[in-house]
Amino acid sequence: MRILYFAWLRERIGKSSEELDPPPGVDTPRALIAWLRTQGPGYANAFSDEKPVRCAIDQEFQPLDAPLGSPKEIGFFPPVTGG
């Protein structure tokens, strides 16, 4: 699946998107975050605290405990600050 990072998550991870195949058992965005944390210091830093992390599955806002399914795209970002 394609994973996208925005704002300070993008900065800490050092990339705006990547194609990743998480292992079986990663069935929610929260579980995906836990796995991503093991992928390097940038990820560990970006996801050290889940509280300010929001996500979208296939471009729809979803809670971190939503079923992941088999999305084409998942985005991680802080709370939005437009307008």
């Binding site: 925005f6 704002a7 806002f61 985005g75 970002f77 802080p78 939005v80 600050t81 437009g82 307008g83």
Partner: peptide, 14 residues
């Protein structure tokens, strides 16, 4: 529109 945009549209300001 502006009230909803502030919390429901993905934009981030630095």
């Amino acid at each position: 529109l502006i009230d909803q945009l502030k919390t429901r549209a993905p934009f981030w300001k630095a």
